[in-house]
């Protein structure tokens, strides 16, 4: 069993524990809507991961064609967005710039995915569902004031630099590709570490809404890192992603008990 399959198995175990704990909370809280959506998002991720693991074991070293697990991934983003609840009526007015920038970031990311894989339909559709989740998260994060104005600006600059460098890699000679690639990985993992620390620290504070946003922001960034990584860096991103679901569960648990 290779490292990727082993980490997939670990992720499945983590997700089963999260799913079980989530169901216990749903019983205790008489069916909290956030928890129900999160439970089903986790179930979609769990089954998609299981499918990927089985495929990897049965048909190693072969590229997976379009399969049901991609639809599971799209549903995962939709259900996570639904778990954040409906945005308030005025929230879009306060977050126009951020939402617009998120849309551009996702569109550019989808362009890069197409450039890497050549799978037009899958990448465009994944981009739409991923973008919807990110926009919902941005709206919620803005209304919860989960990030300062400086934080939003810094994140915007980091995302713009990342997209610009990744796009440049397509056009530069082979010798220049490697250092640029390394630079992107440094950015990706430095920001992942920042999001992880924020998500962990916000669990200690008495602000459940912000905790949910920070935990989901960590997951969203890790998903971005997974889509943009390969080889050993992909393994690193997978290791980091193991923390995302327990953190989200803890954040929702806090939010539900605060209500």
């Amino acid at each position: 069993m290779n490292a990727e399959a082993l980490l997939d198995l670990l992720q499945i175990i983590v997700l089963i524990v999260v799913f079980h704990e989530n169901f216990r909370l749903i019983y205790a809280n008489r069916g909290s809507v956030h928890l129900v959506f999160f439970a089903f998002a986790a179930a979609c991720y769990l089954l998609s991961d299981l499918y990927w693991l089985v495929y990897d074991l049965l048909r190693p070293e072969t590229r997976m064609p379009f399969a049901a697990n991609e639809i599971g991934e799209w549903a995962f983003f939709l259900l996570l967005a639904a778990s954040l609840g409906s945005p308030k009526a005025d929230s879009f007015q306060n977050a126009k710039k951020e939402v617009l920038f998120t849309g551009l970031f996702v569109a550019a990311s989808a362009g890069l995915w197409i450039g890497w894989s050549g799978e037009w339909m899958q990448d465009i559709l994944t981009g739409i569902f991923y973008g919807y989740f990110l926009c919902t998260l941005v709206l919620r994060a803005k209304s919860e004031r989960a990030m300062s104005d400086r934080g939003w600006r810094s994140l915007g600059i980091v995302c713009a630099v990342l997209i610009a460098v990744q796009t440049t890699i397509f056009f530069v000679p082979d010798a220049a590709k490697d250092p640029l690639d390394q630079f992107c990985y440094i950015i990706l993992f430095a920001v992942s570490a920042v999001f992880l620390v924020r998500a962990v620290l916000s669990q200690r504070k008495d602000e459940p809404g912000k905790s949910v946003c920070h935990a989901l922001a960590f997951l969203a960034w890790i998903e971005t890192a997974l889509y943009m990584s390969s080889g050993g860096y992909y393994i690193m991103a997978m290791i980091l992603s193991l923390f995302s679901f327990p953190l989200i569960l803890l954040a929702y648990k806090k939010e539900v008990s605060a209500k």
Partner: peptide, 10 residues
């Protein structure tokens, strides 16, 4: 819509 797609994907 989210719940229908979620259930269908499962």
């Amino acid at each position: 819509f989210s719940s229908i797609i979620g259930g269908l994907s499962l």
